[in-house]
Each structure stands twice: as C-alpha cells, then as structure tokens.
Computed example of a mutant assay.
Amino acid sequence: MILSRHNISNADRWAIDGMLLPPETSLSSLLQMSRREMMSNLASIASAEAVNGEPLAPIDADQEVWASGVTYMSSRLAREAESETADVYEKVYDADRPELFFKSNGWRVVGPNGNIRVRSDSAWDVPEPELTLVINAHEEIVGFTVGNDVSSRSIEGENPLYLPQAKVYNQSCALGPAIKLVDSESLRDLPIHLQIHRSGSVVFEGETRTSQMKRNLEELVSYLFREMDFPNGALLMTGTGIIPTEEFTLQSGDLVRIQIDDMILENPVL
C-alpha cells in the first residue's frame, strides 16, 4: 500500500493507493494508531475519488525528522577522512549507542521535485541517500520513504560539534515521493541507488543495500524512543552508505536522483 500527500484545492489531502482519504485524515492521526489498527482503518475509509495532482513531501507540519549517522562502514571511513578529530567516528561506529540527531521539522521538508540547497558558507556539500523509516507513536515501523540528508562535509569536518549547522538548514531535508507501508522484515536488504546529473550528464553514481548497515532498524528506533515520546509518530533517516569522492561537491543546477526499491525521489539543487 502506498500512502501519499497532495495539494487538492489548496488543502493538504492524503491518499492510499491513489484514492483520496477523508479530509480530516492526516499522517499524524494515522500514526497515533497501532500498526494493525491503522491498516484496518485505511482499508475502510478510502474513497472512490482518485488523486489528481503532484505529490507533496509525505509528512505533516507538526511531525519531526530525525537521522542516524555512521551506520555504514563507508560513512565511517568518509567522515574519518574529512575530520580533524577522526577517532570520534570510529568510536561511535563501534559503540553500543548510535549517533542520532534532529534533522527537520515537518514544515521545513522539501518534497519531490522541490529545490534542495547547499549552504553559502560551505565549500564541500553532498547528498546523502537514506532509507527513512516511518514510525508510529507505539514504536512500530509501519513503512518507509526515500530521504536525502543534504550535508556540508566541510563544516562537520572542521569540528564534529558543528554537526547541527552542517545538517540543519533551509531545504536540507527532502523526502518522497510517498510512503510504502511494509513491515520491517521487508526493509532488510533493499537496494539504494544514487545518481547526480549535471548539464545532462551523470557526474556521480553509487549504490548500496540496506543489508550493509551495521545496526538493525529496530535498534535505531529503540534508541530514538528512549526518554522521548512521539505522539504523532516520527520519521527516522537511517544513515548513508553512498559517499561521493572527496573531489566532488554539489553545484547549483545539479539534479539528485535517489531510488530505493521502486520509489524514486528527484530534487534539483538551488
């Protein structure tokens, strides 16, 4: 089942498998339910009215996006290479506790085909393609979407304490095109593919699989929910295993294309 969000007559409307849900239905209201209750509810309330319009970012304004770091060996090695304090990444990769950080409010998230940005005070910037979990208020994984955790490698490399500035700024978080409702077992070995297009040519391409993650998904979710409630659910980026070379940086006019399983998220760089 595919859950998507659209602008219909200047109002946000959610749809399931291309059929509109009642106007009062939101992702927040769905994620307040258990997974079983949500699936049963969706099956009973879909209308016969088909969606007509482009999808928006699959998140409500009052929800949060969090992110995980150093969950793939390739990410650890890249962040060690860029950093003046490389040992912190080795330590967090091997530690029991994962790296988790706040990425974006729902209202800041860029949707499919929306512009992402690089910071004007950064010289080295990359997209980070990430499986993004959709989690309900009861700590259950109900599905996933495609995420782009746009990041400044130069700012984070200067000092790990600058992580919020490297990660959290306008148009640095993109999600879409929709949410695929699946159980967590279906997410163990998904392919992730990244292409960056510039002036009509592919200037970077890479791929990985979610099975290359060191930490399992339930572990990341359990740490996110420690000592913190998410009454409207939350979305969690699970880290990147695709790192462009040190010579590469995003430029205005680039197009970033991320595919996870059969879902594709594209965003031009502003």
Results as ranks from 00 to 15, higher is better:
Leu224Pro: 00
Val168Ile: 11
Ile45Pro: 02
Thr85Gln: 14
Gly147Asp: 04
Glu266Asp: 08
Gly233Lys: 10
Met213Gly: 10
Asp262Phe: 00
Met73Trp: 11
Thr25Gly: 13
Val168Pro: 00
Thr245Ile: 05
Ala166Glu: 01
Asp17Met: 05
Asp261His: 10
Asn159Pro: 03
Ile242Asp: 05
Thr210Met: 10
Glu158Phe: 15
Val51Cys: 09
Lys103Tyr: 00
Gly147Gln: 02
Gln32Ile: 11
Asp229Cys: 04
Asp121Glu: 13
Asn216Tyr: 12
Trp14Ala: 06
Ala234Gln: 01
Leu161His: 11
Met73Asp: 07
Met237Trp: 01
Leu3Ile: 03
Gly176Arg: 02
Ala78Met: 12
Ile196Thr: 02
Gln259Thr: 12
Leu21Ile: 13
Ser68Val: 14
Leu31Met: 05
Asp183Phe: 06
Asn216Val: 08
Asn136Ile: 09
Glu64Cys: 03
Asp87Tyr: 14
Thr85Leu: 10
Gly200His: 13
Glu247Ser: 15
Arg119Asn: 09
Leu235Trp: 00
Pro23Glu: 15
Arg119Trp: 12
Ser154Gly: 01
Ser83His: 01
Leu163Trp: 02
Val92Cys: 06
Arg79Tyr: 12
Asn105Pro: 06
Ile45Asp: 05
Arg153Lys: 12
Glu24Ser: 14
Arg257Met: 07
Arg188Trp: 11
Tyr72Leu: 09
Ser211Gly: 15
Glu90Leu: 15
Phe144Pro: 02
Gly147Lys: 00
Asp183Arg: 04
